[in-house]
């Protein structure tokens, strides 16, 4: 098991190198630091001095890959590639445009993100699985038919409208909870409720429909017929036999996104003013703060690969057929 995990972690290295090279090319090769500086400072009336100053402030004033002027190891280390790209492997994210340490920001901002994302995920799965089971139980009937149609209708509404509508109804019209803001501890609860509820509702349609197909697929299998031939009731067939098998794809599908929960939800956080990583990212994109975007790209990849690893491990826990080798 340990050996397997180590091996899988090694697999991740080439992928992270790929991500690293890709971001390097995107951020420094497609457009040179000069171009970026010019775009930032306004294209027309910008002096070369201003550009150099902008670059020096951010440490973009070095050569890209090889520093000819430096000597020894400095040839390699005194470059943008080394300082900005390779440093990511050591989780040294550098500073954002406003001069703050990105690493510091990440470690404080991930908690509000988790406070929204974790309950949203757990409640969302619970509700979706329950409704999906209900539809599977009544498969082929009008309950099932209209349930699916309602799911499709829910899926057809843009997530933005759930947020806007929820904020308008609950916050503005009924004054139940504040429209936006965040606080820690018990006081934070009132800020969390609405985003979580909206997050759950927004994902419900797709979730129910997906899980329903999982259940129906299992219901068509031979072992279900065996269970019925044993004289088990339909609900027992559904809740023990089918549910247990269908939970395998459901759980492993969830595990893969677990680590990325740290990243938070871009839209929810930004609409509700939650100071999490999602809103941090979106602000960085809108302010064209490339250092932050680059850091988040790398962090996202690391977390995704972690998710893949966890998925493999979780298979061994829920599926007796799978043994890691």
């Amino acid at each position: 098991m340990i050996a397997y995990i180590i091996r899988r972690t090694l697999y991740a290295i080439p992928i992270l190198i790929g991500v690293n090279l890709l971001t390097f090319v995107l951020f420094f090769v497609v457009n040179s630091p000069d171009d970026i500086a010019r775009a930032h400072l306004g294209v027309k009336h910008v002096t070369q001095d201003a550009i150099e100053k902008w670059k020096a402030e951010r440490g973009y004033d070095k050569p890209l890959i090889i520093n000819e002027r430096a000597a020894g190891v400095e040839k390699i280390t005194g470059t943008i590639f080394f300082e900005k790209s390779l440093a990511l492997f050591a989780f040294e994210f550098g500073r954002s445009d406003d001069g703050r340490s990105i690493g510091q920001e990440i470690s404080t901002r991930m908690w509000p993100s988790l406070a929204i994302a974790v309950p949203t995920l757990i409640i969302g799965i619970g509700v979706a699985v329950s409704f999906a089971l209900l539809l599977a139980f009544f498969r082929g009937s009008y309950i099932d038919l209209w349930g699916v149609v309602i799911c499709i209708i829910m899926m057809s509404v843009s997530g933005l409208f759930y947020i806007i509508g929820g904020q308008y109804l609950v916050g503005k019209l009924w004054h139940l909870v504040p429209i936006s803001g965040y606080d820690v501890g018990v006081h934070g609860f009132k800020f969390i409720v609405l985003p979580v509820v909206i997050g759950v509702i927004g994902g419900l349609g797709a979730g129910i429909r997906l899980y329903r197909t999982f259940f129906l697929e299992e219901l068509g299998k031979d072992y279900v017929r065996t269970a019925r031939a044993k004289g088990l009731s339909e609900s027992r067939v559904l809740f023990t036999h089918v549910l247990k098998n269908a939970m395998i794809p459901i759980l492993t599908g969830v595990v893969v996104i677990l680590p990325t929960l740290f990243m938070g939800s871009l839209i929810l956080e930004s609409f509700f003013g939650i100071p999490g990583l999602g809103s941090y990212t979106i602000d960085a994109i809108q302010a064209q703060d490339f250092a932050v975007v680059r850091a988040m790209v790398f962090l996202g990849s690391v977390l995704y690969i972690l998710g893949l690893l966890l998925t493999d491990i979780s298979y061994t826990l829920v599926d007796p057929r799978v043994r890691l080798a």
Binding site: I15, V19, L266, T281, M296, G300, Y304, I305
Partner: peptide, 8 residues
């Protein structure tokens, strides 16, 4: 795939 879509 490992890069979050929105960020890419």
């Amino acid at each position: 795939n490992s890069i979050p879509d929105v960020l890419l």
